[in-house]
Amino acid sequence: MIRLYDYVLSASCYKVRLMASLVGLKLEHEAVDFHPGLEHKSAAFRQMNPAGTLPVLMDGDLILTESTAMLVYLARMSGPEWLGPDTPQALAQVQQWLAFSGRLAASLGRARLHDMLLYPGDIDALRRDGHDALRELEAALTERRFAGRDWLVGDAPSIADIACFPNVALSQDGGVVLDDYPAIRLWSLSIRSLDRFVEMPGIHRLHELRPAPVEV
């Protein structure tokens, strides 16, 4: 079974849990005491991942420490349609968004860690960089909508969307409000409407997709 070294509040770990659920893969979860225990910085953990970061995905001899690589692995294993269309343009565009998701983590993600877990950082600069990244994403999604498309690449959701979604959806935890980004709002609703979508603290499922609970 594929094992995920996991922390429930981590955007990057959630990225992998969400992908696994969307492609119908069950993971074995190994909870790591990221906060306050700093278990991911321990000598024992660093033997597995010298960078001392979460998540870590282990499947037999394969050890992955970058969440975007994990998305590729899970999609190729169980849902190759999530890799996006097999054209030179689309493959490159997916890579472009996987790299871009790193910028979201370095801005919105860091702002969230600053506000939630008291990480050091220049919060104004982090939020400004976060808005810059959101503007880029908003412009791209706006152009996609002009072409009648809901997703970042191709006609269907792909690992590109899943890579970018968590840090965007959690941005309010870092004091970055999404009110000014209508295309991102609709894109986020599309992702949360997907079959087998899973939630995490801070990203709730869409209650409206199910009928109101019946009172007893």
Binding site: P182, A183, R185
Partner: peptide
């Protein structure tokens, strides 16, 4: 406060 195509049926926005 916005454009109609950004508020489909069944959606709330600020």
């Amino acid at each position: 406060t916005g454009l109609c195509h950004d508020l489909p049926n069944g959606v709330v926005m600020a």
